[in-house]
Design a protein around this nucleic acid. Structure first.
Lengths: 241, 241
DNA sequence: ATGCCATTATTTGTCGGACAAATTAAATTG
DNA sequence: CAATTTAATTTGTCCGACAAATAATGGCAT
């Protein structure tokens, strides 16, 4: 481990440099979960900085759950889950408009992408659970559901996909989606009304029916159509720019 | 801002508590990029902890680019990009096997999901660029490309999708995909051979041709088939468990 | 009064040392 | 040799100090 560059560096603080050095160290050593790393005093000596600087860098890795520390036992690498740490500090209001809409699109794309998996994995029990959610969920109008029911339904789809990273990802961006739903409601509303009037809306019940009928292509198409409100808005927005 | 609980708390360190308090504070104040937050001394007084504790918590937010600090000017909130910070500290070896394969599947799902967008957004210039990549890329065999060409091709697809969050996400998981490609190569190889022998492989060139012919459903299906190696392996793995 | 310059004050960044608490390692004792 | 006591190690927290950067202030000449 090399000593950090202590010449007045206007771009990176010592903590930043130590963070980078540690990442390099982790990589070069090929560390795996359970492996331990040198103690703080050792690191501060090796890197030539104060212990407080090392601690601030280590603190960063602790936030994302990359290392755990215990008194006297030292510090060990812990398995990270990509999105696990993100959930806590993601504040929708801190994202700029473009990013928020990109994430809305991301979500739509993802749900279209998993439709094949969902169809494959969907069994009788899953179908019953989906029906329950659709049944109990108070539909506000044709395609707008109470937020709880909406969330429950799509969560179940992610769950059926069986991919934990995708499930975690959904949990991360959920607050962002609620945020965008509120913020852009006035844009979505008229589009939805238009779709409704033309009988082009696809309800949760429609989706469940198609799953039950084992109509793969119908289901795939219906999933796309279910998100038409968003895709129409997103596309209109792109063509303006 | 409430003082932290200093009774010997075996679960959370003071730094962890301060981190949470700060997140609550950010949320409750509805802070937006550009807004400034109280200085370290003030925070440490308000929270009833040492400045070093506050600094370790703040350091965490600095890592993910949530706040920036300058001498005398204090600290200001900065716009975060969901995945921007992740890129640095994601080490494939630190992920467990299930997560790695989930991410491989995530990628496949995502690319299937964007196929509609890619098709819509693909214009003459994009097509030319794709052709160039396909032309120059040294195909190792029918469906295995030199890593560079492979990356370039799919990067271009993400780029055509025009969604920056998706592009960033791809950059984040790219090292994971390279990792999984190596690690599971012995599993992918025979599946690929089998697909080859049955003439079921879909090359990059095939995809470009379909884009050029404006065959939407053909393209969508081809994208799915292009990833068959992975989906076959992933499915076989699920049925075993 | 205004514009420029020197001085002061504030705030982050870094350093060093101190001690408590937890827990492992070692030593002592029956 | 087992059990218990003692010591040593390492993280977590606190405190105080100073440097560097930069904003705020005040004075001075025009």
């Amino acid at each position: 481990m090399e000593k950090v560059d202590k010449t007045p560096n206007h771009k990176f603080s010592l903590v930043d440099q130590v963070e980078n050095q540690l990442i390099s160290y982790f990589k070069s050593m090929g560390l795996k979960p359970g492996d331990s790393i040198p103690n703080e005093l050792q690191l501060s000596k090796d890197l030539g900085v104060a212990r407080s600087v090392v601690r601030e860098a280590l603190s960063r890795f602790k936030m994302v759950g990359m290392i755990e520390s215990h008194t006297k036992r030292g510090m060990v690498m812990t398995p990270i889950s990509l999105f696990g740490a993100m959930r806590d500090f993601l504040i929708p209001g801190m994202l700029d408009e473009d990013t928020i809409l990109d994430l809305l699109e991301f979500r739509v794309v993802l749900e279209i992408g998993i439709s094949g998996m969902v169809f494959r994995n969907c069994n009788g029990r899953n179908l019953e659970e989906l029906k329950n959610i659709v049944g109990s969920g108070g539909a506000i109008n044709s395609n707008r559901y109470a937020s709880d029911s909406e969330y429950a339904f799509h969560s179940k789809l992610y769950e059926i996909s069986g991919n934990n990273s995708i499930i975690e990802f959904q949990k991360v961006i959920h607050p962002v989606l609620e945020f965008v739903e509120k913020k852009y409601n006035s844009y979505f509303e008229p589009i939805q009304k238009d779709l409704d009037s033309r009988g082009l809306h696809v309800t949760h019940k429609d989706l469940v029916d198609l799953l039950e009928r084992r109509d793969l292509y119908g289901y795939k198409q219906a999933v796309e159509d279910h998100f038409k409100v968003y895709t129409i808005y997103l596309n209109s927005r792109k063509h303006i720019e």
